[in-house]
Design a protein around this nucleic acid. Structure first.
Length: 320
DNA sequence: AAGCTGCCCTGAACGC
DNA sequence: TGCGTTCAGGGCAGCT
């Protein structure tokens, strides 16, 4: 399950291998992956084929390639090719004659290009997705309300795809503001983990990293958001950021650059997880301090939450 | 506003 | 062995 660090690794790979190239042909092998493109497969194909990718941008787990008319370079772009990896999506750069993946959904043929050292770059960009929770679609670009860049990318165009405009900025976005997040957080009457998973409040955090960050910062998932003080907010954001940056550092070095990876599991290194999936195993912070505390798994929001009952005591005024 | 449920989907890991 | 059930997850619609 790719979370933000995995998607950022993909973004960097795409930026390096696809920027400046034209999408010469589009082959849709499974229309279900275009579910969110409401105008249908032919419209998708017609819009994407012949377009040139001018930048690759990400906000939270939404990733998009800014398209410009290959025949009119320099015109202000107005559409983006959006991709969401969902639970099992991959974007792969491969040679066109490489065997087709079992779950290949969309295939984009890229114009010829060479690397810095003059070697030819592979010509296929493939979207592979086993569970089809992810997908691709074309989105209209609109101005960002704050005039800041739409997300993390090379250019600083203040544009955001319509379908991503309701998604909040993520902690790796230079325009992310802890202060404004704090203000909005305090205005909520809910529990901290719910808030962290609310992509409209802060984006890019999934179940695994939420648990990791809560453990690292020592907060219970039901901590009422309206009791968070500024240092509390700073602590949880610092935890989220450091968990993500650690995963990013691991992911960024472990992938073959040409294989713009995105295999869900690859970005995580299970041995590095402190809380998620460690039910019944000792809390490492407690162990370091001479206590034996076993991590617990609790059912929460129809999924699992892992926590240390000593480091993350349930608050008296807990919010579900 | 907030928070439920259900849906989309596959395949691994179970129980019998 | 084989068939059935359960679970996992992000995002969103539709409801209370």
């Amino acid at each position: 399950m790719p979370e933000l660090p995995e998607v950022e690794v993909v973004r960097r790979g795409l930026a390096r291998w696809v920027t400046g190239r034209t999408i010469d042909a589009v082959e849709v092998l499974d229309p279900r992956s275009l579910r969110r493109h409401v105008d249908g497969v032919e419209d998708f194909t017609g819009t994407v084929a012949g377009a040139r990718v001018s930048d690759v941008v990400r906000r939270g787990k939404f990733l998009w390639m800014i398209l410009e008319d290959a025949d009119a370079p320099g015109d202000s772009p107005h559409v983006a090719l959006m991709a969401h990896l969902g639970m099992s999506g991959q974007l792969l750069i491969e040679e066109p004659d490489a065997p087709l993946e079992k779950h290949l959904k969309v295939r984009l043929a890229l114009s010829p290009a060479v690397d810095d050292d003059g070697t030819d770059l592979p010509g296929d960009l493939r979207f592979v997705d086993q569970r089809i929770f992810g997908g691709m679609f074309v989105a209209d670009l609109e101005a960002t309300p704050d005039g800041q860049p739409g997300g993390l990318g090379a250019s600083d165009l203040p544009l955001i795809p319509h379908q991503a405009a309701h998604i909040a900025r993520d902690p790796l976005d230079p325009a992310f503001s802890v202060d404004s997040f704090h203000d909005r957080l305090r205005g909520r009457r809910t529990g901290l983990k719910r808030a962290l998973l609310d992509q409209g409040l802060i984006s890019g955090i999934g179940n695994i990293y939420a648990d990791e960050a809560l453990w690292a910062a020592g907060f219970h998932y039901a901590r009422p958001t309206d009791t968070m003080r500024r240092p509390d907010t700073r602590r949880i954001i610092d935890a989220v950021t450091s968990v993500m940056e650690r995963a990013l550092a691991a992911g960024g070095t472990s992938f073959d650059a040409l294989y713009v990876n995105v295999n869900g599991a690859s970005g995580y290194f299970a041995r590095d997880l402190e809380a998620y999936g460690r039910e019944g195993r000792p809390c490492r912070r407690c162990a370091a301090e001479g206590r034996t505390t076993l991590l617990r798994r609790e059912s929460f929001m129809n999924r699992s939450s892992y926590l240390c009952p000593y480091c993350q005591p349930r608050p008296r005024n807990a919010r579900p």
